[in-house]
């Protein structure tokens, strides 16, 4: 992707409580769906909701130890880098996300 094209804009998408721990919620951004994950220790990550394998919706997977297991064929994707773990290869786009108070901001 072209890194300097547009400066980041931070968009409020909801509050921390909207997302279950060890779970995810989706944000529709035009045609794209972005999955925003919350870990057991309240860290937030955002990935495109599309598995690098066959486009499985990662938001529907089981979240564990900084990763999500895709619901379709069990690839394990790192929340931080979007990269497939283990023997599988491929990566999903990641987006910056941060917390201001309890508001979740997504950087696009």
């Amino acid at each position: 992707m072209n890194a300097q094209a547009t400066p980041l804009t931070w968009t409020a998408i909801g509050t921390l409580d909207d997302i279950p721990r060890q779970g995810a919620r989706c944000v529709r951004n035009g045609r794209m769906t972005i999955a925003v994950f919350r870990t057991a220790d309240d860290r937030l990550f955002a990935l495109e909701d599309r598995c690098p394998h066959r486009n499985g919706p990662l938001s529907q997977g089981i979240v564990h130890d900084g990763c999500v297991t895709c619901p379709l064929h069990n690839w394990v994707i790192s929340l931080e880098t979007g990269a497939a773990q283990g023997a599988d290869s491929g990566a999903t786009a990641t987006f910056p996300v941060r917390l201001e108070g309890t508001t979740v901001l997504l950087g696009l």
């Binding site: 998408i13 279950p20 779970g23 919620r25 944000v27 529709r28 035009g30 769906t33 696009l108």
Partner: peptide, 11 residues
């Protein structure tokens, strides 16, 4: 929370 998106940014 499972069934609706959290936000829709652009139509």
């Amino acid at each position: 929370h499972e069934f609706a998106p959290m936000a829709a940014l652009k139509l």
